[in-house]
Computed example of a mutant assay.
Amino acid sequence: MTKNAVQDVDSSNYETELHALQIELVKVQKSLIANGNQILVILEGRDAAGKDGTIKAITEHLSPRETRIVALGKPSDVEADQWYFQRYIAQLPKRGEFVLFNRSWYNRAGVEMVMGFCSKAQYATFMSTVNPLESILIQSGVTVLKYYLDISKKEQKERLESREQDPLKQWKISPIDQQAQKKWNAYSTYRNAMLLKTSTAEAPWTIVRANNKKQAHLNLIRDLLLRINYAGKDKKMAAPDQSIAFRWNGKVSALEK
């Protein structure tokens, strides 16, 4: 598909393209199970960036037995006193599993610092240890794919307001979300620091421009397919629009201000 075709996608074309990509994802899972591999997809991004919808698009037709979505809540008092990564380690994929983290240990690099939920010392410890941890996981056979969904301040404002007006989305409203616009610049500062420090050759960040949800879904999946080896891959499907889903290049100018 050409770049313009992706950008001009309408509802009917979107469903057609998504269906074809989901067939490829089923191939990924069949290969994953057959070979006993492990895939961990980390999804981070601005509040209201579309992580839930992206995960639904990825997992809709995958086997629930070998697919897990992990969205951990506030740590308990016991968990708060443990090694920070401990409760996440317990959720890592087993052999043959596809696991998606809807937010992850990178909470410490963003929301926890912005909202004052951790100390500067805890933040510094996290930033100095997360890369070695991910390296160990990768060397142990876990495929780690990290995505950051980026949206504009205007788009975030509209989505948050939509949540407040939609009775079916009330569960998505939280005190943290309500601070997202007020603390926009602080989130930007810590996002930039996170990307600069934790995008490594082994586990790079992929940025997904998500102002258009449909484009974000299609191109994130295409990028995911590109990065995974599996039997029967249709290489034409694994071709993301590089203006929408692209590997972080270290340039803050590539991100939403």
Rank of each mutant, 00 (worst) to 15 (best):
V144D: 03
Y84C: 06
L220F: 14
V144W: 13
D234P: 10
V70M: 03
Y88I: 01
D234V: 07
K120A: 15
S104I: 08
F246D: 10
T125S: 12
E161Q: 15
I58W: 09
Q242W: 01
G53E: 08
F246Y: 15
Q82M: 14
Y106N: 03
I55Y: 05
A71T: 12
T189H: 14
N37L: 06
S63Y: 04
L168V: 09
S76E: 00
W171Q: 15
V26Q: 13
R103K: 01
V208D: 10
S31I: 01
G50R: 09
K214Y: 08
Y88V: 00
Y148K: 08
M237P: 00
I221V: 07
S188T: 15
I39E: 05
K169I: 04
N4C: 09
L145N: 11
K120D: 13
E97T: 02
L40G: 01
Q86F: 06
A71R: 12
R247P: 05
A48L: 01
Q165G: 08
G232K: 13
A109Y: 04
N219F: 08
F117W: 12
V6G: 02
I207L: 12
G50I: 00
K146I: 08
E24T: 10
K182W: 01
E24C: 03
K172M: 06
Q178V: 02
K235H: 14
I151Y: 02
A49E: 06
P167F: 02
F101M: 12
I136T: 09
K183C: 04
S11H: 11
K182Y: 05
P132E: 08
L220P: 11
L225P: 11
E202V: 04
A20Q: 13
K197L: 11
P167K: 01
S243Y: 06
R108C: 13
S135E: 13
T206N: 14
Y106T: 06
K30N: 15
L226R: 15
Q156T: 02
K157R: 12
A201L: 11
Q22D: 09
K183T: 10
T143F: 09
I23L: 14
N13Y: 03
K172G: 09
W105K: 08
M237W: 11
F98A: 01
D223C: 08
K153E: 13
G36S: 01
L21W: 07
L160H: 02
K27D: 02
N131I: 07
K213N: 04
I69W: 02
A216P: 07
L218Y: 09
D52S: 15
Q178I: 00
Y14L: 07
W171D: 13
T189C: 06
A231C: 11
D166K: 05
I207G: 10
A238D: 11
G45W: 00
E97F: 04
E158N: 11
C118H: 04
T198Q: 08
R222I: 01
G232M: 02
N219D: 06
G45N: 02
F117P: 03
G250F: 02
